[in-house]
Write a protein that binds this DNA or RNA. Structure first.
Length: 431
RNA sequence: GACCCCAUCGUCUAGCCUGGUCUAGGACAAGAGCUUUUCAAGCUCUCGACACCGGUUCAAAUCCGGUUGGGGUCACCA
């Protein structure tokens, strides 16, 4: 049975690269009907923190990567020591006491040989271990080193496929040697290409957010982020960009993963997020938006009209890049007065439109039914009577009502704003 | 520096394994236009790549070698 693992170190947040590694592991496990194991590599007592464990677990849950088993390396120190002593007994390792260190370290005597490793993504990778120095297994403070704990765990946890970032390629020969020395069966390796910054180099904070949780906070949808991450070094083929995870599980295989490092492109993530937002269930989307509106004091916790809110969400849905945009773009529905963009006012409301606005209000008042079609009809009637172009009046009205030059169709805006608020906002510009 | 990995439009990629169907396809971005109403939505169009050199072959984006470029790793961090 396929058993894969994702092994983050709780010394920081789950970042984009880690999320992608988790995705490919999880995906492979689900595709092969195997197990996805989570292992917290918290051997560094000083840098490992519970808050990071929580953060990583929460991000993983949010992305939808449920794990079948979970382990903490800090609870397995006796296992590592036991294995190290095995090597000591067989003469494959030796101890060393440094004057400035508390205790004895156990060190692996690296044998000189050429190693050819198989990799599911790369072709054969060759190494000459002559360039590798002897490896510390157990540090003088009694904690295991990364490479040693990793090998012992992967072997004892029966990991069949080690799927991890490219940056671990040079660790692999060291680990292969350890597998051999300990008499463990070698897993299959798959090294994923790294995700890079726009300017080159490994993805870092320098050019933007790196933590998965930050993207969540910015208003990206988990399935959209997963879809984007999936496209970085894998393709479903047939010129497809949008693919949901269930379908990806059916199509995914490790051997189809690219070897080339991919640049993280926020614009494309934005496009994908918009695609998901557009097709999202308005009711569910409203659930995500409501807390944001409450926080901004736009609505009151238990005093708002849900159906009305969902209608407004629908209005903006095709345009949203991130969920958070809603609160900014639709603010005029919730504020007593629109947040006026000075440039917009200067451009469209400088001219005196008292007569036009007055006539429009009269027409709205005369309406038998205040619905979108009737509102548009009355507007069209007015401009033909005045003999002007529709846009000469549409833009000023939009700015007067919303404070912005951009937004949904004007007649929908008027309808959902309501007759009274529309009149009130237009009246402000009648001298 | 040593070792390792990688190399198709600005970006993500399809094609490469199993050479000919590739005057290299799609998407994002950018630019232009359309939409008797904006754009941040939609539609149409445009721009734009096989890093270079050599080899194998009737034929190379595809196979081989080298060069160049980019990236990664070289800790008693993980």
């Amino acid at each position: 049975m396929v058993r894969v693992r994702f092994a983050p170190s709780p010394t920081g947040n789950l970042h984009i690269g880690g999320g992608r590694t988790a995705l490919f592991n999880w995906l492979y496990a689900r595709a092969k009907d195997g197990k996805f194991i989570l292992r917290l590599e918290d051997t560094d007592k000083l840098r490992s923190q519970q808050e990071f464990v929580d953060e990583i677990l929460n991000s993983l849950k949010w992305l939808g990567f449920n794990w079948d088993e979970i382990y903490y390396q800090s609870q397995r120190f006796n296992i590592y020591r036991e294995q190290a002593e095995k090597l000591l007994k067989s003469g494959l390792a030796y101890t060393e006491k440094l004057p400035d260190k508390p205790g004895e370290a156990i060190i692996f005597k690296v044998p000189q040989q050429k190693i050819k490793m198989q990799d599911l993504i790369h072709s054969g990778i060759e190494f000459d271990t002559a360039v590798i120095k002897d490896q510390v297994l157990i540090k003088s403070d009694g904690t295991p080193t990364y490479n040693f704990a990793c090998v012992v765990d992967d072997a004892t946890m029966d990991i069949t496929h080690v799927i991890r970032g490219d940056d671990h390629i040079s660790n692999t020969p060291k680990q292969v040697l350890l597998y051999e020395a300990l008499g463990f069966k070698l897993p299959k390796f798959a090294h994923l290409p790294l995700i890079m910054n726009i300017g080159g180099g490994r993805l870092s904070k320098r050019t933007g957010a790196t933590a998965i949780s930050e993207y969540r906070l910015m208003g990206y949808l988990a399935p959209a982020l997963v879809n984007y991450l999936l496209l970085l070094s894998w393709s479903p083929g047939e010129n497809r960009e949008l693919i949901d995870i269930k379908e990806a599980i059916k199509l995914f295989d490790l051997t189809d993963v690219n070897k080339t490092a991919a640049t993280f492109d926020l614009k494309k993530l934005g496009w994908i997020n918009n695609q998901y937002l557009k097709n999202a269930d308005s009711d569910k989307l409203a659930d995500e938006i409501i807390p944001m509106l409450i926080e901004k004091n736009y609505i009151h916790k238990d005093g708002f009209d849900r159906n009305y809110l969902v209608s407004i969400v629908k209005l903006f849905q095709p345009r949203l890049l991130v969920v958070n945009d809603f609160a900014d773009w639709a603010d005029f529905f919730f504020l007593d007065e629109p947040n006026m963009d000075p440039a917009a006012e200067e451009k469209y409301l400088k001219k005196d439109l008292s007569r036009e606005f007055t006539l429009f209000i009269e027409r709205l008042d005369a309406l038998k039914s205040f619905d979108i079609a009737s509102i548009e009809e009355s507007f069209r009637g007015l401009i033909s009577e005045l003999g002007i172009e529709s846009k000469a009046l549409i833009h000023p009205i939009r700015v007067a009502l919303t404070g912005k030059t951009i937004g949904p169709g004007l007649f929908e805006v008027i309808y959902y704003l309501g007759k009274e608020r529309t009149k009130e906002r237009l009246s402000k510009f009648i001298k």
